[in-house]
Design a protein around this nucleic acid. Structure first.
Lengths: 138, 138
DNA sequence: ATCCTACAATGGACATTGTCTAAGTCAAGC
DNA sequence: GCTTGACTTAGACAATGTCCATTGTAGGAT
């Protein structure tokens, strides 16, 4: 976990209290917080931290490739710290719960040249939707 | 094309000038407009139409299943009238151009039970990313 | 053809998410 | 322990989307 902090330090990332707190909040599996959620949690550890700093820091983590931006719903971007293991997402259509999933097969090879319209296709993002046990078990 | 208007009428949708204009704007293949773009085009045909009405109407069309919401980027929702032919999307990472694509295979069957976490999975959405010919041909 | 009425449209305030800037603050190196 | 350039802050601003009270109207009833 402090892997993240270690890696960042090793890459010459200037360490500040704010950045440490943000990195600490973004930790674990199946973590997919919005920027405001990150801010809310960061504030409990460091009350003075500002919204702008959280946004800036998240943006930097994304640029560094340490965190992924996920847009499973149309509302806010979410931030996924599980950037070093490729995966896709399973989303509950009712409550919005998100799980990381690892489908078999490679969707990239399922897109024939005739369907590529001359694009250079480099990435694919798969979002499964359904109901989680709680919401389905009505 | 007026298929859409026909279908809506047949389903007892109360027809108004505003709704007709919105339905007319959303017509064709590879159409993926944001709500504001729909509004901008609707205004050229019906200057008094309000933003709220466009949002309401789009929401209704989505509820009726005649139009799909697509969230290929983190900014605005886009509306895709091609709802009666299942398809996925190919997005240019630079300019944002969007094409409808039809991959082979069924990603749903690529998600093993062990990766479903008890969810009832009903839908899957695939977004391919890359560079369109114009942006790649730098 | 005209009237009624429920449903639709309007516009403007408000909410949410995200960006920007100018000024103050601080981590890290010397 | 200084210096300095990068970081943080607060708040204004922008973009997108929602809500509500008021006004308008489509379509059925007469």
């Amino acid at each position: 976990m402090s892997d993240l902090l270690e890696r960042l330090r090793g890459r010459g990332w200037r360490m500040t209290a704010q950045r440490r707190v943000v990195a600490e909040v973004l930790n674990g599996e199946h973590v997919h917080l919005t920027a405001d959620e990150v801010h809310a949690r960061a504030v409990t550890k460091l009350p003075e931290i500002s919204r702008a700093t959280v946004y800036n820091t998240l943006g930097e983590l994304v640029s560094l490739g340490e965190v992924l931006e996920v847009t499973t719903d149309k509302r806010a971007k979410r931030y996924d710290p599980n950037a070093h293991q490729p995966h896709h997402h399973l989303v509950c259509a009712r409550c919005g719960a998100i799980r990381d999933v690892h489908p078999t097969g490679n969707p990239l090879s399922d897109l024939p040249d005739s369907e590529r319209f001359g694009f250079t296709v480099s990435d694919v993002e798969v979002t499964y939707r359904g109901l989680c046990p709680d919401c389905a078990g009505a």
